[in-house]
Every structure is written in C-alpha cells, then in structure tokens.
Amino acid sequence: ASLDAASGGRVVAGLGSGWSLDEYAAAAVAPFEQRGKVLDEVIDVCRAVWGPDPVEYEGALTTVAPSVVGPKPKGPLPILLPAGSPRALRRLVDRADGWMPVGMGAEALAEQWRQLQELAAERGRTEPVQSVLRVNTQHTGKNYEGADRRPFQGSVAQIVEDLHAHAAVGVEEILIDLQGRARDAAELKDLAAEVYAAARAAGV
C-alpha cells in the first residue's frame, strides 16, 4: 500500500502458488500439496486488508482480529496470477484480475491465451482479463546460433525478435528482466537502453 501511494496507484500484485519444494519446507506454512489452497487464502487476506476497516478474517492459516490496518492502497490492488494447470486457470478466471504468464514461446503463449479466453467465456466472466507477460532474458552479446536456443536467449536483435512475436499475441504489457548476466549496474543500464531503442524501432 505504501508503494502504491508512492507510485501514484500503479502497483499490481503478481502472486503465485510457488514451485520450490525447498522454499515451502523452509517456510513451514503448509505442505507443498496444499499450495493452491494457501494461495486462495492469501488472496482472501489481501482483499480483506486492502478493504475498509475494521479488517476481520478467519481462515485455515490466518486469523485477523477486528483491526484497523493501514495505510490502504488507492484502491484494491489488481491481482495477477500465472496459470499452468486447469485448476490454476479456473482460479485465475474466477478470482483474479489478470494473467501473468512467462515468455516461453509465442505459439505456446497464444495457445494459453486462447484457452484462458475460452474458459472466461464458459464461466461467464464479463470483466476483461489484464495481461502482463514476464520475460527472463539470457543476453549473450552475439547471436546464439544453437538449435537449442530458448525464447529471449541471445543477442539484442534476437531478444527483440522474440519480444515482437510475443507482443503480437496481444498481451497488454511485457515485463523484461535483463539483469541475469549483467556484471554491474552500468552494464545493465546500457543493455536496457539498447533493448529499448531496438524494440521501439521494431514497433514493440
């Protein structure tokens, strides 16, 4: 909520059920097999805390006695979820404001987007589904020539080519992580400027 106020109401909440057995074991909140139920409760708690006071919640893992909780965000923060299974897709359509997929290939993204839209229509959703694509790049300087090249792996030109293909699917925003192999902040800044200029020149 503090960040939302500082940014003029631009914060979105990207949440997920997690994938790491080690992280779940370390947190010791619930068994890994219950991560979907945990996420459902997290969403409920967030909605309650961001809403009007007094905040009160009683769940399997969380209890909030009647309380005044502040600061409040400008409005309920949009919740975006990934969706890698039928159950996760249903949760997204029924409970979230938007979709947060990973850039794993334009064809796969287009198919996931089609499935999501069909499910939203089937379940009677009328609100539009926001979409923010998360892109993890592996910048290699020169073109990556191997047949095993993954999306967003290689030169700036290859990264921008993949950006263009993914943007054509129709996602509203793309969040690009370029810091994987940058040696320092100056190199990251230069790479970001180069990618930005190339992407704009390509119409992205």
Rank of each mutant, 00 (worst) to 15 (best):
L175W: 09
S85Q: 09
V45L: 13
A193K: 13
V42P: 00
A197S: 14
V171H: 11
Y57Q: 05
L15I: 00
L39M: 14
Y196K: 15
V45I: 12
E161C: 07
E41S: 12
D162K: 09
P82H: 09
S20N: 04
A27N: 02
K142V: 14
S67F: 13
E111Q: 10
V132R: 09
A60P: 02
M100G: 00
L89M: 15
D53R: 03
R123C: 04
R35Y: 12
R134V: 08
M104H: 05
E172S: 14
H164N: 02
R10H: 01
D4R: 00
V132N: 07
V12D: 03
A197D: 15
R91K: 13
L92S: 09
A1M: 11
H166C: 15
V55R: 00
R47L: 09
A199Y: 11
R47W: 02
R87D: 14
N136M: 13
E41M: 12
A167D: 11
I176V: 15
A83V: 06
G84S: 12
K72Y: 00
V102P: 00
D148M: 12
G14W: 00
P52M: 05
E33N: 10
V171C: 10
V38C: 05
P52W: 04
N136A: 14
K74G: 12
R47G: 09
L21Y: 03
E161N: 08
Q130F: 02
G203F: 15
W113Q: 14
I43L: 08
L119I: 04
E161F: 02
V11I: 15
L109G: 08
N143T: 10
G59Y: 09
L188K: 05
A193S: 14
E172A: 15
T63L: 08
V129H: 01
G124D: 08
A168V: 11
G18T: 04
R90L: 10
E118A: 14
A6Q: 09
V45W: 07
D4P: 03
F32L: 05
R95T: 12
G70H: 15
S155M: 04
V55Q: 03
T137Y: 04
S155F: 10
L92F: 05
V160R: 07
G51Y: 06
A168W: 11
G141S: 14
G124E: 07
P151L: 02
V45K: 09
V11Q: 05
Q117Y: 01
P86R: 12
V12G: 01
K72S: 04
D162H: 08
L61G: 03
D184L: 12
W50L: 01
R150C: 03
R91T: 12
I43G: 01
A198H: 10
L191A: 10
A201I: 02
R149Q: 12
Q158W: 09
A165F: 04
I174R: 06
A182G: 05
V129D: 01
V204A: 07
G75D: 15
E107I: 02
V38K: 02
G75F: 03
R183G: 10
E127T: 06
P82N: 07
L175M: 08
D184C: 06
G180C: 06
E118C: 01
L116M: 14
E173L: 02
L178H: 08
L39T: 06
A199V: 11
A202L: 07
R10V: 00
A25K: 03
G14I: 00
L163Y: 03
A147L: 08
D94T: 13
E107F: 02
A198S: 14
R181H: 15
I159N: 03
